[in-house]
């Protein structure tokens, strides 16, 4: 009899141990340090001391309210746009893709194969002042002769929507693909129109995908600072830009830590509400 046979109940823990320990030390513990740091006061020259400095939080909310609101606003608009843009395509691939499904899915994730920063720089090229998009909009008088797209909220939202679109499209596709076609046929027999059948059967059955896609898009979008940095101007800065510059340029660690925590707390609340609604297994299942 091997050791494993006598202690079978230990096997799962032995399998888990290395990975879970790694995550504990380099994911959970750092969050503790972040929380600790967020309650410190002082400065980089004289050192920081833990003083239960809750004021870091109030000051962050007071001074950077605009950036917090803007982050949620941009991320919200981009998520909604991504949902509206990709739902019909996910539907098309799921129900009409046939044997081309996998190839079409590959197209959906194709942007991920171009380095994130490089594809954002490509948008900078596309939206640049002498680019064809600006020229076209100017000739249509949508934009004034000196109007531009770069350094506007439109450019930032465009970039965010594009960059996180596959996160929305894939879970939508997964949930649409799982729908039994016979249910829709039955619905079409029972309800008057295809529209009704869609609204009453297909749409509700695809809701897990909608919720998963929304979370997977909204979470990274709310914390993003690359799009705002490369496509926006100072007026378009999001909370990620502030956190980044406080940490890496101004070395105001406690304030930056407090802001990170506010951002994460807001997002965690949303995720836990969702986890309660659908269960953790399904949540991690649809995340692929």
């Amino acid at each position: 009899m091997s050791y494993f046979h006598r202690h079978r109940e230990l096997t799962p823990y032995l399998l888990l141990a290395p990975g879970v320990l790694f995550l504990a030390v380099f994911f959970v513990v750092p969050l503790g340090f972040l929380a600790y740091q967020s309650l410190e006061s002082g400065n980089i020259d004289f050192g920081y001391a833990f003083t239960w400095s809750w004021s870091n939080y109030w000051h962050a909310l007071r001074d950077y309210r605009a950036q917090f609101v803007r982050s949620l606003e941009y991320a919200g608009i981009a998520t909604l746009l991504a949902l509206l843009i990709s739902y019909p395509v996910a539907y098309w691939i799921a129900f009409r893709g046939g044997r081309w499904k996998n190839l079409l899915l590959l197209f959906i994730v194709a942007p991920f194969f171009v380095t994130y920063l490089i594809r954002t720089l490509a948008w900078e090229t596309i939206l640049s002042d002498n680019g064809f998009v600006v020229n076209t909009l100017q000739s249509l008088h949508v934009l004034g002769p000196s109007g531009r797209l770069l350094a506007t909220s439109t450019a930032v939202v465009t970039g965010i929507t594009y960059n996180f679109l596959p996160f929305m499209a894939l879970p939508l596709y997964v949930s649409l693909e799982q729908i039994d076609g016979r249910l829709i046929e039955a619905a079409e027999d029972l309800y008057a129109s295809k529209l009704h059948a869609f609204l009453r059967v297909t749409l509700p059955l695809s809701l897990p995908g909608v919720v998963a896609g929304t979370l997977l898009t909204f979470i990274p979008a709310a914390g993003d600072f690359i799009n705002a940095q490369l496509l926006g101007g100072p007026d378009n800065h999001m909370i990620g830009n502030v956190i980044q510059s406080k940490f890496l340029e101004l070395t105001d660690y406690p304030a930056a830590a407090a802001m990170s925590f506010i951002l994460m707390a807001a997002i965690l609340v949303a995720v836990f509400v969702y986890a309660r609604l659908v269960g953790t297994e399904q949540l991690t299942g649809t995340a692929v």
Binding site: L23, F27, L31, L34, L215, I219, P220, A222, G223, D224, F225, G240, I243, Q244, S260, F261, L263, M264, I267, L268, V271, T284, A287
Partner: peptide, 8 residues
């Protein structure tokens, strides 16, 4: 970790 923003 999947649901935490990268910046955090």
């Amino acid at each position: 970790p999947l649901s935490t923003p990268e910046i955090v």
